[in-house]
Design a protein around this nucleic acid. Structure first.
Lengths: 200, 200
DNA sequence: CGGGGATTGGACCTGCGGGTCCAGTCCGTG
DNA sequence: CACGGACTGGACCCGCAGGTCCAATCCCCG
C-alpha cells in the first residue's frame, strides 16, 4: 500500500468514526460514510475487503485508542494523589462531554461481541486500562501513600468496574452522579490508611 | 382486548424474549418470532401496531422485570448481613449463568437509547434497583450495622455502578472477577465500622 | 341464534443497504 | 516514455426483513 492509499484509508476510518459519533452506528450506512469521506464504494471495499464489519472494527480500534489517549498523561503516571485527582477530572470531563452516546459500545454490539475481532479490541483496551490502574496502585503503595496490604490487582479491577458502571449509568440515566460516586468512593478507599484485608 | 388476545400477546412477548436470549436481538427477525410463537404477521402487528420497535420494547420491559425478580427475596429486605450475602450470591449466580449475553442491553441499544420508551424502561429499572439498595443501606444504618455517617444514596449509587460495571466487564472479558471484586469491595466498605465522611 | 368486533392466516409489496464489477485514471519505476 | 499495479468512480445487483392488506374465522353478547 502506498502513502496515498494509507492516507485514504485513514481518512475513511476517521470520517466513519466522526459520523458514527454523531449519528450512532445503526444509523450509519456505507453510503453515508462514502459521502462523508468523499470516496466511492469500491474504495471502501478496496481498503476493507471484509466489508462493513471490517470497517467497523477498524473504527472500534480507533475509538479504543482515543479512550486511553484522553486520560493521558495522568493515567500513565499515577504516582501521586495529584495525578489521581487529575485523572479523575479527565475521566469526568470526557464523559460529561460525551454525554449519553457511547461510540465504542454501540460499535461493538453492532459487530457482534462473539466476533473474535471485537473480543480482541475490547479485551486489549480493558487489559491496558486495568494494567495502568494497577500500576498506579502499586506505585502509591511503594511510595507509602496506600496501604500495602491491599491487593492492587483487585483494587484496580473494582475501580475499573465502578468506572465502567458509572459510564453505563450515565448512558442510561443521563446523570453523572454514578460515575462520580464510583470514582470518589474508589479513591477514598485507597486514601484511607490502614485498611484491613478484604473479606473472604 | 379479550382474555384470548391478552394470552396471545403474552405468548408473543415471552417467545420473543426466549428467542432473543438464545440468538441475540440482531439475529432475530419478525419471521423468527412469528414461527416460534406460532402466530402470523398480522397478529404481530395487531398486538404491536408500532411494529418491531414496540415489540422489542415490550420484551425489554419483560426482561427488566426478570432482572429484579431474580434478586428476590433478598433485594427487597436487605436488613441483615445474611441478606446482603445472599443477595450477592444471587447476583453472581445470575450473571454466571447468563454469561456474556446481555439480553436487555442488546435490546435497548437496538431500539435506540434516544427513544423515550427505551429511556423509560431502563430508567425505571435502575431507579427501582437503586432504591432497593439505598433502602437496604438505611435499614442497616438503623440497625446499627453500618456507620450512620455514610450517605446512603451515594453508597447505593456507587454499589450499583460497580455492579453494572462488573456485569459489563463480564460481557467484554468473559471473567466474573470484576463483578466479584466490585461487590466484595462494596460490601466490605459498608461492613467496615467507623467510616469517615466521603472526600469532598 | 344472528351481528359484529376481535382475532387469525398468509400472500404480497417495497425500500434499503451491503456487496459486486468493470472500466478508467494515477503514478512510481525500469 | 511505456508499463503495470495501485487507486478511483459509479452503475448495478439482489436478498432480506419490516410492513401492508384483505379475506376468513372465531366467539362474546344481546
Amino acid at each position: 500500500m502506498t502513502a496515498k492509499g494509507a492516507a485514504t484509508r485513514e481518512r475513511i476510518v476517521a470520517g466513519a468514526a466522526a459520523r458514527i459519533r454523531e449519528h450512532g452506528v445503526a444509523a450509519t450506512t456505507l453510503d453515508d460514510i462514502r459521502e462523508r469521506t468523499a470516496t466511492s464504494k469500491s474504495q471502501l471495499f478496496h481498503y476493507f475487503p471484509g466489508g462493513r464489519e471490517e470497517l467497523l472494527l477498524a473504527v472500534a480500534r480507533f475509538e479504543a485508542d482515543r479512550v486511553l489517549a484522553d486520560q493521558q498523561p495522568q493515567l500513565g503516571a499515577l504516582t501521586s494523589w495529584e495525578a489521581w485527582e487529575g485523572w479523575r477530572e479527565k475521566v469526568l470531563a470526557r464523559y460529561r462531554a460525551q454525554g449519553r452516546a457511547c461510540p465504542l459500545g454501540g460499535l461493538l454490539t453492532q459487530v457482534g461481541r462473539a466476533t473474535p475481532g471485537a473480543q480482541a479490541v475490547v479485551a486489549e483496551l480493558m487489559a491496558r486500562w486495568e494494567a495502568e490502574l494497577a500500576a498506579g496502585v502499586v506505585a502509591m503503595q511503594r511510595g507509602g501513600f496506600v496501604d500495602p496490604g491491599l491487593d492492587a490487582a483487585r483494587e484496580a479491577a473494582a475501580l475499573l468496574a465502578g468506572l465502567q458502571g458509572g459510564v453505563l449509568m450515565l448512558m442510561t440515566t443521563g446523570r453523572l452522579t454514578y460515575l462520580q460516586a464510583a470514582l470518589d468512593v474508589g479513591l477514598e478507599r485507597l486514601r484511607r490508611a490502614g485498611g484491613e484485608r478484604p473479606v473472604p
